[in-house]
């Protein structure tokens, strides 16, 4: 949920696989949105989902409706 992201980078910091990063792309409120570098390394631990204060990111498994990450 890009629009809800406020660029706090908690997810980037706390992802144990270090596969999230802050992009140059900004949402309509000017925050730099986070994104995933390599989804194959995602272990589905949901740390990003729990540590995100904005409910802006959550884990989706392959083939599910597109969440913040998609295969």
């Amino acid at each position: 949920m890009k629009e809800w992201c406020k660029g706090c980078r908690f997810c980037v910091e706390f992802c144990p696989q270090h596969i999230l990063y802050e992009t140059d792309e900004t949402n309509s409120r000017g925050y730099h949105v986070a994104a995933m570098a390599d989804s194959s390394k995602c272990i589905g631990c949901e740390m990003c989902t729990m540590i995100c204060p904005e409910f802006a990111i959550h884990v989706v498994t392959n083939g599910e409706e597109a969440g913040q990450e998609v295969k």
């Binding site: 890009k2 792309e25 994104a35 570098a37 409706e65 969440g67 990450e69 998609v70």
Partner: peptide, 11 residues
């Protein structure tokens, strides 16, 4: 590089 999620109401 993965595709970014679509910013949809469904999401």
């Amino acid at each position: 590089m993965s595709e970014l999620a679509v910013n949809s109401e469904k999401t």
